[in-house]
Amino acid sequence: MWVPLILGLVAAQRLGELALAQHNTARLKAAGAIEIGAGHYPLFVLLHGSWLAVLAVTTPWTTVPNPWLIGLFVLLQLGRVWVIATLGRFWTTRIITLAGAPLVRRGPYRFVRHPNYWIASLEIAVLPLAFGQIWIALAWSVANALLVAHRVRIEEGALSERD
């Protein structure tokens, strides 16, 4: 009962975020923004989609999740909302840069660079662990770390022009 409910909520949230990201991306591009590093974007879609799919397929639907880890996951969702709200119209799931736009230095960006990547990395580990799926947490965390390291290098290069 808990597995399909929680995974369904996470999938719905992610789909809503993708719609918002596409909307923001279109608006930014219409204003003259450009996308950097588009080639690796499908790998992120594959990583996050397969993460949820493997959780859904391999986790017995009668599994009772660890309430502390679900609580931590909920806190991470609040962090996601904070990041999205802080970036506002600049939040996307792609690397989109608009010449002349100032870098955001408020909200979670006061404390850490790339907070969304930190939050997503923790989510990728915490949700499977909440269902006792240690191997999913490990495998997808390693894959995510490699992909995020590549993406941060690209993003830092794009942002360095605006620092």
Rank of each mutant, 00 (worst) to 15 (best):
V104W: 01
A53G: 00
A101W: 11
S121M: 13
P115S: 02
T25M: 12
S121C: 10
A99C: 11
N116W: 03
W91A: 00
V81E: 14
V54C: 12
W118P: 12
R80Y: 09
V74W: 00
V74C: 10
F73L: 02
R94Y: 12
L76C: 00
L72N: 08
Y109H: 03
L87K: 05
L15M: 12
A31D: 12
L28E: 08
N24G: 00
L98W: 00
L28G: 07
A120W: 13
G107L: 00
F90N: 14
G88S: 02
A26L: 12
I96P: 00
W82D: 07
F111E: 05
A85Y: 13
R27N: 12
L55K: 01
R89C: 09
V81T: 15
I84K: 13
W68K: 04
R105P: 07
Q77Y: 06
W51G: 04
A33R: 07
L98T: 07
I96V: 10
G107P: 05
Q22N: 15
Q77I: 08
L43I: 12
E35S: 08
N116K: 05
R105G: 08
V112P: 02
Q22W: 13
A56N: 02
H23P: 10
H48M: 14
P65A: 06
L43Y: 08
G37S: 04
P42E: 05
A21S: 00
R80G: 06
T86H: 03
L43T: 11
A21T: 01
R113P: 08
L28A: 09
L52S: 01
L46F: 14
V83K: 00
L47H: 11
G71F: 02
L28N: 05
P60A: 04
R105F: 05
P102G: 10
V104S: 09
R14G: 02
H48A: 10
P115L: 02
L72H: 01
L47P: 03
G32L: 07
A101P: 11
L78K: 12
F90S: 15
G71K: 03
A99M: 10
F44K: 01
Q22F: 13
L15P: 13
L72A: 01
L43K: 10
E17A: 13
G79M: 07
L87S: 09
I34C: 14
I95R: 03
A19H: 15
I36L: 12
W91I: 06
R80M: 02
P102H: 00
I95A: 06
E35H: 07
A101F: 14
A53K: 09
I96N: 05
P67S: 02
W118Y: 15
L87G: 07
I96H: 09
Y109C: 06
L69W: 07
R105D: 15
G88I: 01
A21H: 03
V74H: 09
W61S: 04
G49M: 01
A30K: 09
G32W: 08
P42S: 02
A101L: 13
A38G: 11
A85P: 10
E35R: 08
R94V: 06
P102T: 08
P42I: 02
P60D: 06
G79P: 02
A120Y: 10
T97G: 08
I36E: 11
H114Y: 07
V81Q: 15
S121E: 13
N24C: 03
L72K: 02
A26F: 06
P42T: 04
L15C: 13
A53I: 14
Q77F: 05
R113G: 11
L87V: 05
A26N: 04
L98H: 08
H48L: 14
T93V: 13
V112C: 04
R14S: 09
